[in-house]
C-alpha cells in the first residue's frame, strides 16, 4: 500500500489497516476444520482491499460456519437459522455504502433458508455469499444435509442418506438475474484467495460455494477431491479466477471456460463426474436491487415534509 510514485512522492494514507484490524474473537472450530482457511482468506481480502472495518458487516445464520461474524473485527449480525440472506439484504437496502458479507452453510442456505437463497440471488444485491459446504449438519452433530452424498451414514439416516445430493450450482445458475457463481475447495489457499477477492470485487451477489472439510462429521465429503485432484476440473479464462502456474499444476483436468457463457456453465455444473473449480458464470450487467431500494436517500427533511403534506392534501376535506 505504501510505495514510491514516479515523482518520488509517497502516498501516506490516513489509516492503514493490517490483518489485526480485521481480527475478531478467537475462532473455536474443530482442529482441521476448513473454516479456518476461509476466515483467514476473508481477513486478507479485507486487508488488501483496505476496507475500513466499520464499513463492513458480516451477516450469518446459524451453524458452524455462521460463527464467522464473531471472528471478524468488523460489524456483524449473527442472525437466525436460514435467515442470513434476508437480514443481509435488509442491511444493504438503505445502506448501500456498507460492504456486506454473508457466511452460511449447506443446511442454513440450501435447506432451511432455501426460499431466501432463490430470491436473494434474484435481488442480486452487492454482497459476497460464502457457502461453507461440508455436506453435513456439524453444529448439531451429523444430520443429513441437502448436499450429503447418497448412502452417507448420518444420525438421521443411519442406513445411509436416501436421496441424490442436491447440486447447488445448477440450482443457482438457474435463477433469473444470477450474476456470479464460483466454486472452490478450501484447501487451496491461493485459489480460495483469488476466488473470494473476485467475488468481493464483483458488483452484485457473488455466490461462492466452498467445498469445506469437516474432519469430524463428514471426512468423506472432500476426501475424493483431496486425494484425487483429477476428480476436479479447473476452469481457466482471462475473465475467470486468476491462477498462477504452480496452482494450475495441481489440477490435472482443466478447460477454458468463458464465464459469460451461461449455457456452457450449466453444462459444466450438470456434469457431476468432475467437480468444477473456478468461475462458472459472471454477468456484470445484471440488475442490482439496491439501485431501487436505496433511492431517495438524500431527501432533506423539508422535502420529505412537503411530500407528506402533498400526500395529506389528497385526503383533505
Amino acid at each position: 500500500m505504501f510505495g514510491l510514485k514516479a515523482d518520488w512522492s509517497v502516498d501516506v494514507f490516513e489509516r492503514y489497516f493490517t490483518l489485526g484490524n480485521y481480527a475478531g474473537g478467537e475462532a473455536r472450530w474443530c482442529p482441521g476444520c476448513g473454516d479456518f482457511a476461509v476466515l483467514n482468506t476473508v481477513h486478507r481480502v479485507l486487508r488488501d482491499a483496505q476496507m475500513p472495518p466499520e464499513k463492513s458487516v458480516v451477516v450469518s445464520g446459524i451453524g458452524c460456519s455462521s460463527r464467522l461474524p464473531h471472528y471478524v473485527g468488523t460489524y456483524g449480525l449473527h442472525g437466525l437459522h436460514g435467515r442470513a440472506l434476508p437480514l443481509a439484504n435488509g442491511v444493504k437496502a438503505r445502506r448501500p455504502d456498507l460492504d456486506v458479507w454473508v457466511g452460511t452453510g449447506d443446511g442454513d442456505c440450501f435447506s432451511i433458508g432455501g426460499g431466501h437463497w432463490l430470491h436473494a440471488m434474484r435481488y442480486n444485491m452487492d454482497m459476497v455469499i460464502l457457502i461453507f459446504d461440508n455436506g453435513i449438519y456439524g453444529l448439531t452433530k451429523k444430520q443429513t444435509s441437502p448436499t450429503t452424498p447418497t448412502g452417507e451414514r448420518t444420525n438421521t439416516h443411519p442406513e445411509g442418506s436416501l436421496l441424490p445430493a442436491m447440486n447447488p450450482l445448477t440450482v443457482t445458475l438457474g435463477i433469473t438475474n444470477v450474476s456470479f457463481v464460483a466454486q472452490v475447495p478450501d484447501w487451496n489457499p491461493p485459489l480460495l484467495y483469488e476466488t473470494i477477492k473476485a467475488a468481493h470485487k464483483h458488483r452484485g451477489t457473488s455466490f461462492v460455494r466452498i467445498m469445506q472439510r469437516c474432519p469430524v462429521f463428514s471426512d468423506d465429503f472432500c476426501k475424493p477431491y483431496q486425494d484425487h485432484p483429477e476428480n476436479m476440473l479447473l476452469l481457466s479464462h482471462e475473465n475467470g479466477i486468476p491462477a498462477a502456474d504452480n496452482v494450475k499444476k495441481l489440477f490435472k483436468e482443466q478447460i477454458e471456460h468463458d464465464p459469460s457463457d451461461w449455457v456452457e456453465a450449466m453444462k459444466i455444473a450438470r456434469d457431476e463426474s468432475k467437480l468444477p473449480v473456478g468461475l462458472l458464470y459472471r454477468d456484470p450487467g445484471a440488475v442490482v436491487y439496491e439501485d431501487f431500494s436505496a433511492k431517495g436517500l438524500n431527501k432533506t427533511n423539508e422535502e420529505k415534509l412537503a411530500a407528506i403534506n402533498t400526500a395529506l392534501d389528497a385526503f383533505a376535506i
Binding site: 435467515r83 434476508p86 439484504n89 442491511v91 430470491h119 433511492k295
Partner: peptide, 22 residues
C-alpha cells in the same frame, strides 16, 4: 416522493428479516 421504498419480500419471515437488517 418522500424517498422511501416498499420491499415486497419473498415471504413473511423474509419481510421481517429484511426490516430487521435495515
Amino acid at each position: 416522493n418522500v424517498g422511501g421504498f416498499v420491499h415486497q419480500a419473498e415471504d413473511e419471515i423474509a419481510a421481517m428479516g429484511f426490516a430487521l437488517g435495515a
